[in-house]
Structures are given as C-alpha cells and as structure tokens.
Amino acid sequence: MNNNNEKKYIRSHEPVFWGLFGAGGTLTAFMTPVMILITGILVPIGLFGEGKFNYQQIHQFATSWYGAAIILILVALPLWHTFHRIFHGLHDLGVKQGRDWQQVICYGSAFAVTIFVLTLLLQMIAA
C-alpha cells in the first residue's frame, strides 16, 4: 500500500452533542411525562388546591439558587435532546440542503433558550 493514499481520519465533534442529547433524553424520559401532567393538565383543569402552584410559591422557588438550577435544567436540557433529534430527523427526511445551517439553527435554538432562561433566572435572583 502506498503511504500517500493512506486515508485521513477526521474526528467528529458529535460526542459533545450526543452527550447533551443523552443527558436531555434521560431527563426527558424520567421527568417530562409527569411535568406535562402537572403543568399542562392537572393545574389548568384546577385539580390542585388554590394555594398550590401559584405566583408566590413558584417565584420563591425560582429565586432560590437550587430552585433556579432545577428550573434551568428542566426547561433547557430537554431542548438539547430534542433539537439533536430534529437535526438528524431532517437528514432522515432527505432534507439535504444547507446541513450546516440546519445544524446552526437547531443547536443555536437550544443554546439561545438556555441563555434566555438563565438570564431571566439570574435577573430574578438579583432583583
């Protein structure tokens, strides 16, 4: 074999995104169903008492350090999972155009929401 023809192997950066995908996917698998049940169904149809899940309670939780951390993880981490799937799903559907841009938009959205929520939480804690 000729050395000049030796194949160049290029390492993928996918482990970074796959790691976030896996963490988000695990969190989603364990938490999202019960979260949707609470915030999307039980609370709106009024199955909880009046004193529960109200502004004071949530605000107090969100302005504690641990509460803010929990909210950030619960809101933002699933997006690193879902946008990873959407990015690969576009490939599955044969959307070949602008893969680079698809990547920027998908992971960029997850990043933007993460920063947005983080900023809001920090503002609330500082206020």
């Binding site: 192997y9 993928s12 996918e14 796959w18 690969h88």
Partner: peptide, 14 residues
C-alpha cells in the same frame, strides 16, 4: 477507534 470516531463511523447511526 480512528474509524469509530469519524462522522461516518459510529456517529452515522441514529
């Protein structure tokens, strides 16, 4: 692992 680590290695799998 050089083969595995590529985009077309394990990372081509969904």
């Amino acid at each position: 692992m050089k083969i595995v680590n590529q985009e077309e290695g394990v990372w081509g799998c969904t």
